[in-house]
């Protein structure tokens, strides 16, 4: 029940942010069409498996493409939101261009903290109660893992990308990157449970790239206490002491 609701909410939130992302991207692309030497696109489907090759589904697969030629991101700074609600960071995964500012409003009636140890993007917003909360500008590209130091289970992944070409696959694993500059570059697929898939690509016209992602990191089983053991077991054992 809990899982179902969680996934549902997660899905809903993700969808909303994803549509906003799309909007931003479309506006940006329409504003600076001259920057692209020639528009090309990459699309494909990601087959997700576990380590034993069993097919899986996965959310928040972030696909981004970094052309070998650098891209100027100075005008692409944004302000995005990663809110804390129901002891979760929403969205759980947030790809954004580097230099963007992330607001961390607290929608829960309890104290939350937001911190990260991720390299140069490390920060600690301290504890704050319900309200607009902290906001942090991340200058450096890289993965920013955001934690709450009072809620061990809360984690958010902010992908500070040094490229504007990124997208999130849908639940079936389909994705598409448009308006890519032709030329060589590197295609990344990131998922928090998998080692990133990194592939050199030569982008020209519309190319289909089918990829396989192996979810190497398992999900902690549900209905376990923080020891990872069944509540029932622990209760049962307690009587022995």
């Amino acid at each position: 029940m809990l899982t179902t609701r969680y996934l549902f909410e997660d899905l809903m939130v993700g969808t909303r942010h994803t549509s906003r992302g799309w909007l931003i991207m479309i506006v940006a692309m329409s504003l600076w069409p001259w920057l692209s030497v020639q528009a090309a696109s990459l699309s494909g489907k990601i087959d997700v498996t576990d380590r034993r090759d069993r097919p899986q589904t996965a959310e928040y697969m972030v696909i981004y493409y970094r052309p070998d030629d650098s891209v100027d991101l100075t005008e692409r700074e944004q302000t995005v939101v990663m809110q804390t609600r129901n002891k979760n960071f929403e969205p759980r995964v947030l790809p954004v261009t580097a230099g963007s500012t992330v607001n961390f409003p607290n929608l829960d009636p309890i104290l939350h903290n937001v911190f990260s140890n991720s390299g140069q993007n490390r920060f600690d917003a301290g504890l704050y109660s319900e309200g607009p909360g902290a906001s942090q500008r991340f200058e450096n590209p890289g993965l920013v893992r955001v934690y709450c130091n009072v809620h061990q289970n809360m984690v958010g992944h902010i992908l500070m990308l040094d490229t504007p070409f990124y997208t999130v696959a849908d639940v079936t694993g389909r994705w598409q990157l448009d308006n890519l500059p032709e030329g060589s570059g590197t295609l990344y697929v990131w998922h928090e449970r998998a080692k990133p898939v990194i592939q050199k690509q030569s982008v020209q016209g519309d190319r289909q790239v089918d990829l396989t992602l192996v979810l190497s990191k398992p999900i902690r089983p549900a209905h376990k206490n923080k020891f990872g053991k069944s509540y029932r077991d622990r209760r049962g054992q307690r009587g022995r002491y």
């Binding site: 970094r66 140890n117 991720s118 890289g142 893992r145 061990q152």
Partner: peptide, 18 residues
């Protein structure tokens, strides 16, 4: 389950995005 420790180890393990 200590968040800092998790964060630290996670960080040490994950390296860079790129």
């Amino acid at each position: 389950t200590e968040p800092y420790f998790i964060s630290y180890v996670d960080e040490a393990m994950q390296g860079s995005l790129f």
